[in-house]
Design a protein around this nucleic acid. Structure first.
Lengths: 180, 180
DNA sequence: TTCCACATGTAACTAGTTACATGATTGA
DNA sequence: TCAATCATGTAACTAGTTACATGTGGAA
């Protein structure tokens, strides 16, 4: 448990975010929204219960941090929490990898459509990559430039590179399809 | 419902596979295992119940196809099933896109580790892409060359291109990290 | 006769999303 | 005073994975 196991998808991102400094649930969920969600989604509804679970497990300690009348808690890692995080970070096994791309599935089955329909799918696939690219370049990347360390920028750049080359691949595939 | 809605992730891949010709659950699950799983996972445990649900919904028709004493069913699309598939394929809205990459999340939080630890994560990230690449090039691609249409090859080539450029990105990032 | 591929199915579990509900603070 | 943002939380739902259970056919 303290060896990095028993941590679900939400727990991993929560622990990692708090490692960089005290955070409350709202801040974590905001940061996820402009950074990890591109490669590690986690929704608000899962974050709050997970914070309490991690506190119960002794990996986090909560502190009351009221804002006027409003309730607010901020969390920090306990030594056990930091150890669990490090164990997970240093784990030798290949990490979980998963991808779901509906337009790619459409393309896979596109024999059912005429060429126009197939081109439309390719364009949509490209549009999706361009949209992600846009969000990374104009949203996430500028936000990370103020304050985030080099690793975080590195990861965003990975995303930018990937979506850019995917979009380029789509452009070429479209040209080939039309040239047939 | 017949407009392409009410179809869950498993239903989409099941319908698409059957559109190309009569199939049984086992065949679908095998084909998923060497093709769509790279961008659209679906597990056996979900496929059989979904086949029955789609039959109940009138999108599939089942036929007994015993193999000696052993029970076997093969499924074909009904006209309603083909209409639902076409509606989904021709849907204008951007498709669902999701990615989960644990080693990328590790890299994101790698400030917690020393440079050696960071390099190890980058190598693992690369190894993951190379493993996918290997499976696509040596497993999926050759299998698809016998029998699969051009769209299927196209999709596998997309995967190959993507993982190859991701692996290349990792190699460069590692060099930069060591050069610091 | 043994093993592997073929073939189907279910139950239990785990996880995660969406939507809703509530209320305080801040700035325009 | 109004809207947006901050902040926390829960309930209902949907989905999906894993593991188990069972048995046949064909090849070596």
């Amino acid at each position: 448990m303290a060896t990095g196991r028993g941590l679900n998808n939400t727990a991993l991102v929560v622990l990692g975010m708090i490692a960089a400094g005290r955070r409350n649930g709202y801040e974590i969920s905001r940061t996820v929204g402009v950074s990890t969600r591109f490669f590690w989604p986690a929704s608000v509804g899962g974050i709050y219960p997970e914070l309490r679970r991690l506190e119960d497990a002794g990996l986090l300690e909560a502190e009351d941090d009221p804002r006027g009348e409003a309730i607010r808690h901020s969390y920090a890692l306990t030594p056990a929490g930091r150890a669990a995080l490090r164990d997970w970070l240093a784990d030798d096994a290949l990490g979980h990898f998963e991808m779901r791309n509906e337009d790619l599935l459409r393309l896979f089955f596109a024999a059912e459509l005429d060429v126009d329909g197939q081109v439309a799918i390719l364009r949509k696939l490209r549009a999706g990559h361009e949209a992600q690219l846009e969000q990374l370049e104009s949203g996430a990347r500028p936000a990370a430039e103020r304050g985030a360390g080099p690793n975080r920028l590195l990861v965003l750049d990975y995303g930018i590179a990937l979506h850019r080359s995917a979009a380029e691949w789509c452009r070429q595939a479209e040209a080939r399809l039309l040239g047939r």
